[in-house]
């Protein structure tokens, strides 16, 4: 077994174990972990199954098969960050709506109190 293969197996195993451990601790919700789990699983499969990696790499014209692994990893990271951008945008929109509703409701409450006192 080549050093590069041992390294990539170690790294993808490490990511996978970390993700599973974080889910177990409740550090993040499962739905945000799905992409991470899937990515590390695919990376692990490609790291272990050398023939598959060689085949895929040749298919896409890579001279050095492990660089296909890098592309995969890079692609997953892109997907994950894209997903995060979407989640953050969604959250900030909800946060804005909530703040506006809160402001309007406080005003309504104040008026109600005033009307009650007069």
């Amino acid at each position: 077994m080549e050093v590069v293969q041992i390294l990539s197996i170690t790294v993808s195993l490490f990511i996978m174990v970390t993700v599973i451990e974080l889910i177990r601790r409740g550090a993040f919700k499962e739905r945000y972990a799905l992409l991470w789990l899937f990515s590390s699983l695919v990376l692990l499969i490609f790291s272990i199954w050398r023939n598959l990696l060689d085949y895929m790499a040749r298919l896409f014209g890579f001279f050095y098969p492990p660089s296909f692994l890098f592309l995969l990893g890079f692609g997953f990271l892109m997907l994950i960050t894209l997903h995060f951008s979407m989640v953050i945008s969604n959250l900030s929109e909800k946060n804005k709506k909530m703040a506006q509703e809160l402001g309007l409701m406080k005003d309504e409450l104040e008026q109600l109190k005033k009307d009650k006192n007069t």
């Binding site: 506006q100 809160l102 309007l104």
Partner: peptide
């Protein structure tokens, strides 16, 4: 009449 927003939303908000 004043509406207090709980935190800064920026001019748009």
């Amino acid at each position: 009449r004043v509406i207090d927003l709980p935190h800064n939303l920026g001019i748009g908000g």
